[in-house]
Design a protein around this nucleic acid. Structure first.
Lengths: 202, 202
DNA sequence: ATGGCTTTTAAACAGTGTTTAAAACAACAA
DNA sequence: TTGTTGTTTTAAACACTGTTTAAAAGCCAT
């Protein structure tokens, strides 16, 4: 057993673990090298820089998780059901992978340039298919005519931001981790309801 | 003129400018010292560390901006009007002070401990008075009975998150800065409407 | 085995935040 | 004034960071 991994993979895996454990800024390349059991300079040999290594890890992580979301957006599901499923899957994903939130946050926060990761994150955004569906249903009079950008920003905000302010919410409500998870679970019903309601004809 | 400022104030001001200009991580203490026209070690003499200096600046910035918001939440305004004003003021604040967003983001992202800044941020959260108002109106049957925590998280999410994903939204919609501001302006009407709608009896 | 590639290594480099111990300054007492 | 005490400032060093270098080791086909 063991020894199947080549050097590049060992660095990638060790860095992934450490980045998720203690954040990118707080893990040094020397630490990565030690954990991976390789020489310090090899990190720069295989990935040009620490930043680049992070890019690679981040892109892979987002790609893994976004596929299912895109599949839902591009599916033939009826609009309301699609929204329900999208929100469910997205919230579940962030629940199980809380570090993805802080990853994305850290990217968005140092927002200048950084187009590499931007491209990756973009895959979490609306698809053309979904945008068209929203416009079509509006034209048909099945829903209120709605600016797709606003609707999608609403949706992303209601899904993702609660995770970003998790500590704040827990602190203010004296939530345990379990109670916060319960709170999030409630949002899986509440958020789609709110979004669908905003599409209601009046 | 000039020369009114003592050393501590010079450091504080120079650091504030630089932090806002290029972010905390990307400004070195040597840069701060140079800009402030003081010796390197004085930064550690007056503030114990760079982190501590950031805390001081951050706390002051948040305090400045949160006062008006708290005043609205604690006012006697009718609920719907209060929501409208709160959203308006909050969005205006973030529009004029985009760096406050990235500041808060950077705090929330490195979420462990960091209670000092947490306390500061907490002042941006719901007040008891507002929570009570929401429950009372529900009991009176004027609005739908609503979990205040959910409602407030909804409100904060719809207000703040669009700023966090500004670059993503601009990139996806080919927005200019001006167009993004227009988009945000639209949200000043849209968001209160959505929130008030979620309180509607049914 | 010899040459030409890739991979690995130890050492150094330039940058960071922080600490030290001595110097300069200030204010007050003798 | 001089001397003493406490505060403020300084230059230098420290320990750490990410990155580069140039030499060594390994590999593989000729």
């Amino acid at each position: 057993m063991a020894k199947l991994k080549n050097t590049e993979q060992k660095i990638f895996d060790a860095a992934t673990d450490l980045f998720l454990e203690k954040g990118v800024d707080r893990t040094s390349v020397r630490e990565i090298a030690t954990r991976a059991g390789i020489n310090l300079a090899l990190m720069n040999y295989y990935f040009r820089s620490k930043e680049n290594l992070f890019d690679a890890i981040f892109t892979q992580l987002v790609k893994q998780n976004s596929e299912e979301l895109i599949r839902v957006l591009d599916s033939d599901l009826e609009l309301h059901e699609k929204i329900r499923q999208y929100v469910h899957i997205y919230i579940d994903m962030l629940s199980e992978n809380p570090l993805l939130v802080s990853f994305v946050m850290s990217i968005l926060h140092r927002s200048r340039e950084r187009i590499t990761e931007m491209k990756a994150i973009s895959s979490l955004y609306a698809t053309d298919q979904f945008t068209r569906q929203l416009i079509d249903e509006g034209k048909k009079g099945n829903i209120r005519r709605t600016n797709p950008t606003h609707f999608f920003v609403d949706m992303l905000s209601l899904i993702a931001f609660p995770f970003a302010i998790k500590m704040l919410v827990m602190d203010k409500n004296n939530f345990t981790e379990k109670e916060f998870q319960e709170f999030i679970k409630e949002r899986k019903e509440r958020v789609p309801e709110m979004l669908i309601d905003s599409l209601r004809l009046r």
